[in-house]
Write a protein that binds this DNA or RNA. Structure first.
Lengths: 173, 173
DNA sequence: GCTAGATTTTGGAGTATCTCGATTATCGAG
DNA sequence: CTCGATAATCGAGATACTCCAAAATCTAGC
């Protein structure tokens, strides 16, 4: 409707030929995109910015945390974390309570109503992803598991898993 | 090392019981996390913020774009887009050239050196994800494809695909 | 039991990036 | 050729970050 792009994108980028990839590889990217969009929608839903959603994710996963620990997990300065917590408090998503044993510190604890609200959006989505597995046999599920494990490993990122984007507490068994 | 968390996270969040999920479902989340970390690393590599990386992704996928089209794709105001382009120009990632037919407009075109630099990081990673498929038979690859398609669909997000996070131009066939 | 250094949170100043509103140049239809 | 629509940019204000410093409390060592 506007741009002068020749209808098909170039097969060569920056002087580098782009190798063809197979469909599952493309789908992995699409999956990532879909996840990003879902996350954005959740941010709007909770009226928080990416930092706020990230913080809520850690609190949901790990329970009450001190601002210091939160700043480490969010990779923010403690000053910025203070500000982020202030915003969450104003929204009613968390409260500050005194640390039981260290009077210098504080515990940031998510409120029940905000937790329930977040879960109300997360659970249907998680359940629907999990339900997809019902369409596959046990053997097929093994294939899927192996594939996902290998792809994650191929990212070569040590200790993915550390950064939840509003994860559900893993039923660690 | 610090927090008063009882060693295992609660199975109930915000008064809502968390249903157990199967391993592939957890892996889908881990995959998302790994992708997010990779993206962050790429941002550092190119010295850009999330907006800058997103913009580069669109330019790589679609070729030169006008600031207006870019602002629509990034979901930013045109003013913010102007600033973002300024930053990319300063970094040498793009240049502004006059639009061939509309003298009001401009084309933002990625530089070869920055494209090559980005590709130098993207391609190995894409290739390694694609290479994982070699470990699976054709039938198994079909299973993987079906699974990924179904999971993406279950996100219920119309037109994922629109938002590239530094995608490679799809060899549209 | 006290003191000195470390740790925890918060506040203030400065910077980066966004929105909103206005400005200028150009396009395209009548 | 004029006028409403469209394109990019600029300036002012808001938001969210960094860095640095301050105040309270903890903890080790004497």
């Amino acid at each position: 409707m506007e741009e002068p792009n020749p209808s098909s994108p170039p097969p060569v980028v920056g002087g580098v030929a782009v190798p063809p990839t197979r469909r599952p590889t493309a789908l992995v990217r699409d999956l990532f995109t879909a996840g990003s969009l879902f996350e954005k929608a959740l941010q709007r839903e909770l009226a928080v910015n990416p930092t706020g959603l990230d913080a809520m994710g850690h609190l949901v996963m790990s329970g009450p945390l001190s601002p210091g620990e939160l700043s480490r997990r969010l990779d923010l300065t403690t000053a910025a974390t203070t500000a982020a917590i202030d915003r969450l408090v104003d929204l009613g998503h968390v409260t500050r309570t005194p640390h039981p044993t260290d009077r210098r510190s504080v515990l940031v604890v998510p409120t029940d109503t905000s937790m329930a609200r977040a879960m109300g959006h997360l659970m249907p989505m998680i359940a629907s992803v999990d339900a997809v597995l019902d369409e596959f046999s046990d053997e097929e599920q093994d294939v899927i598991t192996r594939y996902l494990e290998r792809v994650i490993a191929s990212y070569g990122i040590p200790d993915a898993e550390a950064i939840p984007s509003m994860a559900v507490p893993r039923s660690t068994h």
